[in-house]
Design a binder for these strands. Sequence first.
DNA 1: TTGTATGCGTTATCAG
DNA 2: CTGATAACGCATACAA
Lengths: 330, 330
Amino acid sequence: MVRLVDVARAAGVSVATVSRTLNGNARVDPELAARVHAAVAELDYRPNLVARNLRRRATQAWALVVTDVTNPFCTAVARGVEDVANAAGYSVFLCNSDEDPGKEQRYLAVAEAERVAGLIITPASPASDVGRLLGAGIPVVALDRHLPQPVATVVADSAAGAATATEHLLAHGWRRPACVTGPAGAETADQRAAAFRAVVRRCGLAELVEHVPYHAAGGAAAAARLLDLPQPPDCLFVANSALAIGVLEELRRRGLRLGADLGLVTFDDAPWAPLMDPPITVVAQPAYEMGGRAAELLLAALGSPAEPATRGTAVFEPRLVERGSCLRSG
Amino acid sequence: MVRLVDVARAAGVSVATVSRTLNGNARVDPELAARVHAAVAELDYRPNLVARNLRRRATQAWALVVTDVTNPFCTAVARGVEDVANAAGYSVFLCNSDEDPGKEQRYLAVAEAERVAGLIITPASPASDVGRLLGAGIPVVALDRHLPQPVATVVADSAAGAATATEHLLAHGWRRPACVTGPAGAETADQRAAAFRAVVRRCGLAELVEHVPYHAAGGAAAAARLLDLPQPPDCLFVANSALAIGVLEELRRRGLRLGADLGLVTFDDAPWAPLMDPPITVVAQPAYEMGGRAAELLLAALGSPAEPATRGTAVFEPRLVERGSCLRSG
DNA sequence: TTGTATGCGTTATCAG
DNA sequence: CTGATAACGCATACAA
């Protein structure tokens, strides 16, 4: 491994001069700088970031902890984060908590121990604790759900999205809607269910809601329970695309057809949604933009620690994308 | 930030003793150890990994560089890697090269500079250069495609899978097959195309092959070109699920229906494949297992550097999952 | 502007 | 078995 001192020796200068020319903060004689660059190229020197990080007590890396890497919403967020982070000179490491608070906590510990510059997280639970990170001076931005700590947060307007979806269903003549949502206690799951309930209640209809884990298996189980009811629902509002996969599996299993037998709207626009038959109407979150905004908030927090302006909540409006799974063709 | 010396002071011992009890290698008096643990708990001490890494000249982190985080194959691989890495005490950071050799190279540089313990990569190009990593003593395992360097590699048998898929199409009576595959030069793209060609040629049929980038947009463009041919194909073999999305979009746009108008088989089993109408027949790679195997190979390389046994290629057999998109119903 | 010397927090060596 | 102390590779305060 070639070190700073090797470059210094080759260039005939001190390590301080090499460090200075490479970091570009202080002024250094152009000629010496040229010799340094020549030596760097010659030896193919690359700074040891772990040494630099130790000395600077800061890294150039972010951690992005998401609840589900296989969820298109999360991967779109990841790209949004990545693009602005990279532009600002940061690398982002993606960590998958798998909706498991234990796994999440482990990644938080590693992130702290590795002294990441900042962290963006879609919390696995409302109790997810980033207090240690904050205590260690590592700024945190929450995404999709809030944290117990007062950190900058980026969310979509779940209530508005869910209300729009439910009303859309009713506007197409369906009369017995049900909601398949995430676990009780999960912010987005609760908000989407609450908005669904409010719309349904206002119309004097029954409030059918199933809370299940945010996985395909959960969606399938919820759909099965609902469809086994004495008076099964005639349309479904599903709170995310992972659940939707499970719901669709169950419908398929029972030979039920969208449009003919059942109306459907889901939260999140997955790449496969427009390909189904009929194509699925969704409430799309601007996931890429949300990731980008989260990254910008983190950047701001890195620039000015404890900046009050960076503690609010940025709310994005989801957008109804009509495609056909709500039409009553049967 | 609480440091080792703070713990030592609180426990009334030397830093060496604290370090030893925490790392558990050397023997230390049980009573002192108890005092140390008490102090650690009291102060809520957490080791600074960047200092440890500098001193040990090694980290406990792996980098996993994939070409496309939104591809279900890649995310399944990631989980396989993660599970065995975690079990062995390593953390894995996921990096997204986006099929872009430049972005990939940047991540490789960061991984080297951050002195990751090891790296697993699905190369964005056959020229992807991990020479520096290897030179720095960082073991590398390639996945899905080979690298120019002789490192342990995990792949699926693309040729066998593609041949099976093509034969399956022909066995169902389709007579003018075409292949939509990744860019020429990409190993999997070429192998799948070659196997397709071999089967088709053996049957005396035309060799219709489209090479496009491994994105949905590429798949759509390829499908459009093929369907605009004077004698368009009557069935398609698609080389991965991202391409398949685009192909299906294009079919939808043209009002063509699977089974009735066109047969289809794709590589990779995506969660949405069984939900299409008709459900899509696929050649499934055991992605999770492949990721796990890659991790095991990395573990082996970490245990014994330059072990010759860790330089071979592990080949997994893909499995045909029949679902209906090849049946001629029209 | 340049060089010397110190310290970032740990681990590991070497006496005791 | 324990404790002082020297690295690990780099950045910077300070002196020149």
